[in-house]
Amino acid sequence: MDNYEKLGQMLLAIALFVALMGVILLVTGRARRRADLWQSLAFVAPALLLLIVGLVYPAIRTGYQSFFDRTSENFVGLDNYDFVFTNEAMITVLRNTAIWVFLTPLLSTFIGLVYAVLVDRSRVEAAAKAVIFLPMAISLVGASIIWKFVYEYRPDQQGIEQIGLLNQVLVWLGAEPRQFLIGEPWNTLFLIVIMVWVQAGFAMTVLAAAIKAIPADITEAAQLDGLTGVRMFRYITVPSIRPALVVVLTTIAIGTLKVFDIVRTMTGGQFGTSVISYEFYTQGFRTLNTGIASSLAVVLFVLVVPIVVYNVRQMRKAEYR
């Protein structure tokens, strides 16, 4: 299929969609009997239909399949869950996921917060923020390639130069270069660095806005009391933006639970770096074990729920503060 054909297909799809929506609106707009009801239906039905068929039904189906074997033919009870929580490789997966979800939000939020405070109201604020923020626009695949190049290892031999920056720094410092992506469990940490690099911008943006919203009389009063620098940060800034901090932490945690691109691009899940969302992909779409994949998806869902609930409740609090 050549490129023009594809672009044509795209335009056709959009035209079809617009025409369909137009007809729906036009027809229901002319309804005489119970006009209000028909119109509401026309507005809501497309969305609800898609959500029910494409999200609610598949989610229930996945839950159901998690009690069946790899081809969804034989009922196996809780065997899949038993495998997920006892198999040695799976325990590594769960351990890695725990490390990711714990470290990524903490590190990103900390760096984002410190940076937000440092550049707040400085002359170069906009540019300084853009620098940290830009990784947010890049795909995780792109970010991984950028970092793959930082971590790249060349054997430590005569006449061979390092091409990865981090190893070159080690060499400059007189140390041996090392294979950052291979040694367990440290390799997971080096993958987490990538996610932190991406997410710090998000944390910084939201927190910078929260810092600007601290009422001036509070900071003025604190200054009159002689608070400055680190103590100002500790006793005034952080408590004042507490709700925003929680929202940022939980949001990054949710995003981290579902991260899959980095592991796939950097290591392909080898060397003990796999996480739940990546294992879901290999089980479901590589080894074609629908049962295990479904149970992993359910585990992911169960892990996300409490964080989201907490996140939403904190947001409500922030709203009615």
Binding site: D36, L37, Q39, S40, L41, F43, V44, A47, L48, L51, G54, L55, V56, Y57, P58, A59, R61, T62, G63, Q65, L257, K258, S277, F280, G284, T290, A293, S294, L296, A297, V298, L300, F301, V304, V305, V308, V309
Partner: peptide
């Protein structure tokens, strides 16, 4: 707009935000 079960449906849509997309992919 006013229609039956409006608020219930809206809460349901809101709640769907928590569904990680992995859970829907295979089906």
């Amino acid at each position: 707009m006013r229609f039956p079960y409006r608020d219930t449906l809206f809460v349901a849509v809101f709640a769907l935000q928590i569904v990680p997309l992995q859970i829907a992919l295979i089906p």
